[in-house]
Simulated assay, not measured.
Amino acid sequence: MNTRKNQHFSLPIRVYIEDTDAGGIVFYANYLKFMERSRTEYIRSLGIELRTGMQQNISYVVHSLEIKYKKSARLDDLITVTSEIIKVGKTYLVFEQHVVDENNTVLVSAEVKVACVSLDSGKPRALDKHLLEALN
């Protein structure tokens, strides 16, 4: 397993009514969606298209996560979701992610382990060599 401090990727997201509960506060599960978008766009920024991987029988699934909710985002807030790869294993990546507000206050923090699997069987497989090359 390789431990690394990689580049930080940031994705700005506006909080819409569909993201909130009746009180205008972001529903807790929606932070997971925001983090998924940030991880996906981070990988896309490296030149890796997930659809191409799927055509090659490669998929990525969340294996596990640890999340801490510290403060709520609200309707119309502009938040930023950051993603950084902190570990690379043979079959997985570990991301450190944060959701911050416009004052750079951390609202939510998480560590997310994403496993590489064969799309047809769901069994673990080695990370794609193109992804590894892009990360280095």
Rank of each mutant, 00 (worst) to 15 (best):
K70L: 14
L65F: 11
S45A: 05
A110H: 10
E96Q: 15
E66T: 15
L127R: 09
A22W: 03
A22T: 14
M35P: 08
C116A: 14
V117L: 09
F27S: 02
S38Q: 04
H130R: 13
E96V: 00
E36Y: 05
N103H: 13
H63K: 13
R44D: 08
D21R: 10
Y42E: 04
I79Q: 09
G24Q: 09
E18N: 14
R51Q: 06
L65H: 15
F95E: 07
L78T: 13
N57I: 06
T52G: 00
A126D: 05
T20P: 09
R44K: 12
A22V: 15
E41I: 06
Q55R: 13
S109T: 15
E111L: 10
G23P: 05
H130N: 12
I58N: 01
A22F: 07
G23I: 11
K33S: 03
S109Q: 13
K33N: 12
P124E: 00
T20G: 03
Y92A: 07
E84K: 14
S38N: 04
L127Q: 07
F95M: 04
I48P: 06
K87P: 00
E84S: 12
D128L: 04
P124K: 12
V106K: 15
H98K: 15
Q56A: 12
I25E: 04
N30P: 09
V106A: 01
T105G: 00
L93G: 09
T80N: 07
K113D: 01
T40G: 02
G122T: 11
I43G: 01
Q55K: 14
D77M: 08
D101F: 08
Y16T: 01
